[in-house]
Simulated scan of single mutants.
Amino acid sequence: MEKFKCKICDENHLEIITEMRTVEIKGKKILYEAEYYFCPELEEVFEEGDLINKNLNRARDVYRKESGLLTIAEIVEIRGKYNLSQRDLAIILGMGEATISRIESKIIQDKSTDDSIRRIANDPLFLLEKLELNKEKLGKKYDSIKSILKQDQEVCIYSKKILELYYINLPKDDNIRGNANLNLGKIENMILFFLKECKKVYKTKLNKLLWYADFKNFQTTNYSISGLVYEHKPFGAVPIGIDEIIKCSSFIQMEEKENETVGYTYFKFIPLKEYDSKFFTKEEIETLQSIAQKFKDFGNKEISNYMHQETAYTQTIDNEIISYSYATSLKYL
């Protein structure tokens, strides 16, 4: 264990210990892990210098996480993605460099600033627009940032081409495609709708919400909402090309998280804007609302088990395309 010099005893015998503490931030009680120095000679615990600031930032980061805001490390990571200094980020966001410095050391950012920083990382068009507006202020940094941005745009273009290949090779049967063409705008806003209206929407649950919405809408109108084609997979129906679709979205961030307790990874979605109702008909909105109401409190396992009882699942096998003709036999809506 690393030892630190004690200013009282003038010996290198200080140890760092951790302790759960509670502090109130913006009217909210925050439980966080604090670090303290322990002097074995005096048998006393105390904090000073860097530890004071470190503990304050630990508490602020807990508040950020509980409030759906970026942590300090996440903001620094976003700057690192495009090799942005605090000054560069401040110029792009139209604020003072001191503000970014304080966010990373002393204050908690507001929701508006947080949304803008997220868009820097996830919306290439937004960043490109900001770069062009601030080209002169950024100077030589403009070219290096744009070079990195170009790589992101190429990933999106590549994902769209992969998606096109998936769908161009599928059967032309309307029962496969739900009598609708693939509509990326609708899919993006369907996802944004469910992220707003449902709890704990991870990847497995999202796939089932989309499936139920499309098949329920086909049942009542003879058209799917999205034009997505679904395959039978072990955890239920999965839209073909869903990963590529999300990669192309400017307003949906997908983060891979690890659950250390049970030892598996899961995918969390972060919406960067509200859904736009103009993409949908009145009937489609009613369908989305009914699906959200039914499944809003379901977890991944619960909604998967629920879908496994559908004829569409019991009558198909692994990797088989699930025909929209099964919409007539939906039993549980």
Rank of each mutant, 00 (worst) to 15 (best):
I120A: 01
M307E: 05
K5C: 03
V155Y: 15
E41W: 04
K233A: 02
S323F: 11
H308D: 14
Y32K: 02
K135A: 15
N179R: 08
Q109M: 08
L14N: 11
L127M: 14
N259H: 07
L56F: 13
L89Y: 08
E43W: 05
V229M: 01
Y166F: 13
S67L: 03
F38V: 03
I322A: 12
A180E: 14
L170H: 04
Y275M: 00
S112G: 00
K294N: 11
K247T: 13
L170Y: 08
F215K: 07
K137S: 15
K140V: 11
P40L: 02
G178E: 07
K200S: 14
E255S: 05
L127I: 11
I148T: 14
N169L: 06
K208W: 08
F218G: 05
T221P: 06
N189V: 06
Y202T: 12
M20A: 12
K28T: 06
A59N: 12
N207R: 00
L56N: 13
N83H: 13
I108A: 01
F46C: 08
I245C: 08
P124N: 06
M190T: 12
R87D: 03
A98H: 09
M20P: 09
S290Q: 10
F298E: 13
N207A: 12
V229W: 09
E132H: 08
T204L: 02
C198G: 03
L170A: 07
T265S: 13
A59I: 01
Y223V: 00
E255A: 04
S67I: 03
D276V: 06
D243Y: 03
L89D: 04
S67M: 15
S226M: 06
G178F: 02
I91T: 07
